[in-house]
Design a protein around this nucleic acid. Structure first.
Lengths: 349, 349
DNA sequence: CTGTTAGCGCATTCAT
DNA sequence: ATGAATGCGCTAACAG
């Protein structure tokens, strides 16, 4: 019923091995026979059987990209960049690899499940994006999986994620969240702010912790007391930013600035401030993180820390494909850039 | 080196066949032996070999989700919803399926490439999201692929995409873009607008054409001449909206409303209007399409047509998994809902 | 440069 | 309810 490699071989009057070689291009074949084979492929409308191919070769063309939230452009932009470097030629069998993005939804179980599934598929590479979950048991389980994947020949790259000490084989492209957080808060302090609210992300995420640490480092460096009541944790979404801002205002109506975990949260914060009758930045300044595409269009435009998501993703993709050398020591830190825009200004008198 | 099913069988003192049956759960196995097998699996840290399994079973656990632009929340939201219905138990071998998102970037070649790759992998199902490309040759090629996939046992579902007449096996969940476009423009006409600019998406996309047709139908119904100079085509991104708006204003400074292809484009339009010193909606009203998460936070909040992306995606996912009956005739039309917000108002006198 | 041979690891008949 | 045997379609030595 379905056309197999043997059918193609028969039609082209060559051996199955030759067809395989033509398809994989990893072996010298006379151009005349190659042409004959390709014609037969075309005439029979043959499509390689991926599972059979992967079974025999003990590796597949699958490259997994794990993201925490595919509906969040932060991950979308990175995933697109990674995939663009994977999609091209360079794989086996026809020169195409299947870059697949897997949405964990931030769930530890799903993260592990996807890793197992990718391991099961003998994936050529796996790229994990975004902050890691800081639960010790989970981190250990992930590290163990990564080690197994590596041992099975799967390349492992972390993009926008801190290195995993227990899985040192994983190449890490880390964002300098701490430094970015610090820059941002120092900018606000420089403007004269002293009572800053902070809307943090979920507690158990590395991204959350690092950005918050940067914020606190800046406060500390300028002798500003870090009142724990000025920090609220939430999710990385708009609604969380909205609610957290109302809570912060309730706790301290004299706040002059709100620093958000990311741009999406900052947008929610802006909405809450407006709904509370406060002007931005006249009454309260707002700052975000990431510099997502919509941030420049916010009104006023959002002051934030730009992360080179596309560049980092592309690089991670190339490393995953073995087309770029990993950084020395397997770890590279990618810095953010402070983007000062209209949403921050001097505090009200 | 790597643990195989035979190793598990040996350890559990059963035959490989029994282990296979336990893993797939499609066959009666005594609970005592099942337990023994599962223990062995655990002890040996066994992971099923996906390719081998797929080869033998002639089908895989892969479910492909094709999107035009993964960095666009329109697709991200749908993809997340689809994946959430796929990820759960119900697949073969361990009850997990691998929902994978493939980013075509709007390129016809990549769309076909991904379909071939998915065909090669013997995917269990394929979901194509968003507007189709209207090139006849390409549409034919895609339809042919879909037919082949279907014949090979792959379920094919279209989500937010018009039915493919040449591939009637594909279940289609279509958005009523025409109706939504019409509602939106009628809303503006009802407010008193007569000189409306329209920023359309790329020419060759069904979504673009349908929304535009709805717009024109509304104009026509109200006896408003459709001046071709009031329509500009562009991409589905912010920058395109910005530039198109400047162009529209250049062509006709007396415009009182701008209808955008989608919310992202509308945001760019808002930016262009503001940069031109015009007030929204005081001088010019703006409307979008989709009602993406950020649209309610725009200033002013965006009037738009809400598309039930999550619901439609979830339904498409269930149909793809065979957990929900396809709609009668294999086609269902999903309507949008007009969301009137602050960005539209009566035209200036 | 090309053909021959032998598995890859598992699901699935048939038996029992 | 379980075991034995066969083949899925392809790639990778090894010859030649």
């Amino acid at each position: 019923m379905t056309v197999t490699l043997a059918d193609v071989a028969a039609r082209a009057q060559v051996s199955p091995a030759t067809v395989s070689r033509v398809l994989n291009g990893n072996y010298p074949v006379a151009s005349s026979t190659r042409e004959r084979v390709l014609r037969a492929v075309d005439e029979l409308d043959y499509v390689l059987n991926g599972p059979a191919s992967s079974l025999a070769a003990a590796t597949s063309d699958l490259v997994g990209i794990l993201v925490n939230d595919i509906a969040d452009p932060f991950f979308g932009v990175m995933a697109a960049a990674i995939q663009s470097e994977i999609g091209g030629p360079g794989g086996r069998a026809g020169g195409e690899r299947l870059g697949v993005v897997c949405n964990t939804g931030g769930s530890p179980e799903r993260e592990l499940t996807y890793l197992t599934l990718l391991q099961r598929q003998r994936a050529a590479a796996v790229v994990l994006t975004g902050g890691a979950i800081e639960d010790t048991a989970h981190a250990g389980a992930v590290a163990a999986k990564l080690r197994k994947l590596h041992e099975a020949g799967t390349r492992v790259v972390l993009c926008g994620r801190p290195p995993a000490p227990e899985a040192p084989e994983a190449i890490a492209l880390t964002f300098d969240n701490r430094g970015g957080g610090r820059q941002l808060t120092e900018h606000l302090i420089g403007l004269g702010h002293r009572r800053l609210g902070y809307i943090a992300g979920p507690e158990e995420r590395t991204t959350t912790r690092h950005r918050l640490e940067g914020h606190r480092a800046a406060l500390d460096a300028h002798g500003i007391e870090d009142d724990p009541r000025r920090t609220v944790h939430g999710r990385y979404d708009r609604r969380s930013g909205y609610e957290a801002t109302l809570e912060l205002l309730r706790r301290d109506p004299s706040l002059t600035a709100v620093v958000a975990a990311n741009d999406t949260v900052a947008l929610g914060a802006c909405a809450a401030l407006r709904d509370s009758g406060l002007r931005i930045p006249g009454d309260v300044s707002v700052a975000g993180f990431d510099d997502l595409p919509f941030s420049v269009d916010a009104v006023p435009a959002l002051t934030t820390v730009r992360l080179p998501l596309t560049e980092a993703g592309a690089r991670a993709g190339r490393i995953a494909m073995g087309r770029e050398e990993p950084p020395p020591g397997g770890i590279a830190t990618v810095r953010g850039e402070l983007m000062v825009r209209g949403s921050t200004g001097a505090p009200r008198a």
